[in-house]
Amino acid sequence: MPPIEETPVYEVFAQHDALAFATHVGSLRAPSAKMALELAREAFFRRDPAFDVWVVPATQIVHARDFPITLPTAPEEKSYRLPSGYDNGPQWKRFKASEQKIEDVAQEMAQPVRRIPQ
């Protein structure tokens, strides 16, 4: 193993279920990606299981702060971008209430005439 400061840093992400976004949980040093996974298992998931774990070499992450022009900044006036008038709330409520599957929602959305319930 090289000296500690030469051992690569890996950023660790976890997906809690198959549909969840991967969330950053921390970082660690490891001599290889496989070893990073082995160590992440014990460092971050001792008690909680995960659906999947990703390790990414920290050097492979591109930071917007290094290219400030790409950094999202607070908009002055973007209300015209807000999706008002497309209220999907009732669908979501029914989806949750009836334990529909995502496929059912897709089928409903695909119907030729969509009625937005009031």
Partner: peptide, 13 residues
């Protein structure tokens, strides 16, 4: 243990 990561892993195992 020689590094923090292995220290955590070893105490857990």
């Amino acid at each position: 243990a020689p590094d923090l990561e292995e220290d955590l892993a070893l105490s857990s195992t």
